[in-house]
């Protein structure tokens, strides 16, 4: 039998008696709805029921998911004191000279097990006297890029937009709106520790 299937004329190509596509609309248009008050009320009720059930289904799905996603915002994570490391060595008091600024690193307060190297945070630590330390966050107060300490010039410099800070963290030049942030620092049994509060967030 010769097949005459042709996309431009597919209606004829179909087996006889078949309607292509959905039911002809005239079937529905000519249907006479039951318009008694009972039927109308019943339809009204079913409409409201369907919408309410649909809404409930949505809520049941959305609430736990939304809670899961925004939960970290409200979770109070413990802030811990962490001993710093200098060049990979434990940061004991004798590792720091008065007047010198060195890079230290410490573990975040509550890193996840799979954080890998990102569980660490770096900071610039300056021993200002026998007993006192100032620990600067590495994050430029402009947009958070890491500042570098230039020992020769006694300046911190940001590689992103050229923010410069003096040794005490004050803004020396460039776009930063405020001084470098500090981490609280203490000496505990000869170990230098900082309060691992995370990335400083500039709020105005």
């Amino acid at each position: 039998m010769k097949q005459d299937y042709d996309t431009t004329n597919e209606k004829e190509s179909l087996a006889p008696g078949h309607h292509p596509g959905p039911l002809p609309t005239d079937v529905r248009d000519t249907h006479v709805w039951d318009d008694t008050p009972e039927a109308i009320n019943r339809r009204k009720f079913l409409t409201q029921l369907s919408i309410a059930l649909g809404g409930l289904t949505g809520v049941a799905l959305v609430v736990p998911v939304a809670a899961f996603i925004v939960a970290p915002l409200f979770k109070e994570t413990p802030i811990l004191w962490r001993q710093v490391k200098v060049n990979g060595q434990p940061g004991t008091l004798d590792k720091f000279k008065v007047g010198e600024t060195v890079e230290v690193s410490f573990e975040d307060s509550s890193p996840v097990a799979w954080a890998g190297v990102t569980a660490l945070t770096a900071a610039w630590m300056r021993r200002t006297s026998e007993t006192e330390f100032t620990t600067f966050a590495v994050n430029c107060s402009h947009l958070g890029c890491p500042v570098t300490w230039l020992p020769g010039a006694q300046l911190f410099m940001c590689p992103c937009h050229g923010g410069v800070y003096y040794a005490d963290g004050r803004v020396a030049a460039g776009p930063p709106p405020q001084a470098l942030f500090h981490y609280e620092t203490r000496v505990n049994n000869g170990n230098v520790e900082v309060k691992a509060t995370g990335v400083p967030i500039p709020t105005e």
């Binding site: 890193p111 954080a115 990102t118």
Partner: peptide, 20 residues
Amino acid sequence: IGESLAKFVMAGNTVGGATL
């Protein structure tokens, strides 16, 4: 809401395991 937004972006106090 700036601080909350920043925490939301980092998914916590720091950029770490949860962030990526």
